[in-house]
Design a protein around this nucleic acid. Structure first.
Lengths: 258, 258
DNA sequence: ATTATCTTGTGCGTAATACGAACAAATGCT
DNA sequence: AGCATTTGTTCGTATTACGCACAAGATAAT
């Protein structure tokens, strides 16, 4: 039986999807592009790409100097609509600053999205990872402390679906890269209610995470602290960082709107 | 002469614009909505709103429980496309953390967008403002230190256009709320190359900002440090904070890609 | 349990949107 | 100057998206 394509679905607005694809085409490596470049990157005809770009310019989501197009800050409003709709978002930030004040290490909040975690709040101290992290950044869930925490909080069917889709690969020589070991690690996270990941995502990076739950004990987000392996021992993370994180997660949960 | 409506423009894709309006409808106060609520909020027919919502769900920008719709983290990718395309974004963050380490106060980076400033990076310490601030947050430009810094960096014609559009109003009893005084303040910012705003946006809030320039000396963004009036005197901001900020802005400028 | 009200799902005819090809115009390179 | 590449524009039309009307489902009131 032929699978119905999205565009054959009578309730699908493909002009919206195509326009969003144009926005997503811009990146660190392509901060500004010509009309022809956008068409090439998106696989659209030049005429179509042109209409989307001019529409984005007209609505102030993008700008042009007559040749090159670039996104404008109004695009952030779209993401901000999501952030501000998160129940824990407003209350998490002061709690996270308290964590940073107490431990002098970066603190982050993330949610699960597909195979990734997505950062929704962050109070950075000294840089720990090679790449800069910010709201909106994505990392693979299988080898990050917040990722494993969030996976551990999934209902069994969703976790099984995740295992079916994920392709684990070594990011460092310490990465857990076989499914049996990964499942064991996530089960351990579930049982002990926190997750410590040591240099699996990047050498030198050590982080510990706990779940943030709602009143029905569902896992909404993960909260972590990350440090450099030279600065903090695993034992210190368990004895000093974990109690602060558990308390912080509890405070966030308690402050959630009804 | 009748003004041409956007939708009469042959190069305008109104389905994209309408779909983006659906995304923007979600907020802190409406984190989840029914189909009928979205239609009411956006002024669309129910059928149209339904198609946009189902399309967003299909593309994983939104989710539904069968009745209520909510945005998903994928929406952050749209804003992230903008953030990651900013030339100073990657290099600014470690510099801002150095500022926070040196001064123990929140440090932010913002750009101008219309009448507002929009936060594009932030390293918060203790909460200074009543509302939580984050990447994507907007504040009026006329009564914020980063706003006046960015306005001061505008070409004369753009600044004149801003003056034509802005409606200044008191946010506190200290807010500069007449155009002559505002223009003087911005001209002073331009001349001295930094801006200090004391309790004009909110009582208790004191902040100082400097411009971040590119190699052609154009102002790309503003960098600030904010504190509480009870914690730091104006004199201390000038003698202790300003040199650190000027140095930081210089380091960001120096690290910009060619 | 029944009825009323409100919300959502769906089909369908069609208005109008968005399409893409083709050609003109502009720009950039040699 | 000539050529290559990119962009702007027009236009016929394919197809998309529309909105109305009615059916179906859910919820609230009695």
């Amino acid at each position: 039986m032929t699978k119905v394509q999205a565009s054959e679905d009578k309730d699908y607005v493909q002009s919206l999807v195509r326009g969003l694809e144009v926005i997503r085409t811009f990146s660190r490596y392509k901060p500004r592009m010509t009309l022809t470049e956008v068409a090439q990157q998106t696989g659209m005809t030049r005429a179509a790409a042109r209409r989307f770009l001019l529409t984005l310019v007209r609505e102030e989501y993008a700008e042009t100097d007559g040749k090159y197009f670039a996104l404008r800050p109004k695009v952030l409003d779209l993401g901000f609509a999501y952030l501000s709709s998160l129940p824990m978002w407003e209350v998490a930030q002061p709690v996270m600053r308290d964590v940073v004040n107490a431990l002098q290490e970066s603190c982050s909040l993330a949610v699960l999205d597909g195979l990734d975690i997505v950062y929704v709040a962050r109070v950075p101290t000294e840089r720990v990872m090679t790449i800069g992290l910010s709201i909106g950044s994505r990392l693979p869930a299988y080898c990050s402390s917040m990722g494993r925490t969030l996976l551990a909080g999934l209902p069994p069917a969703e976790l099984a679906a995740y295992y079916d889709r994920v392709k684990v690969e070594r990011r460092t020589e310490r990465t857990v890269a076989n499914m049996v070991a990964l499942k064991d690690a996530i089960e351990a996270s579930r049982r002990q209610g926190w997750t410590l990941v040591d240099q699996e995502l990047e050498m030198g990076l050590r982080s510990i995470a706990v779940p943030v739950r709602n009143r029905r004990a569902e896992v909404l987000a993960a909260l972590n602290v990350s440090t450099h392996e030279g600065r903090t021992s695993i034992e210190a993370m368990k004895t000093r960082f974990l109690p602060v994180l558990l308390d912080a997660a509890q405070r966030i949960s308690a402050a959630l709107p009804q």
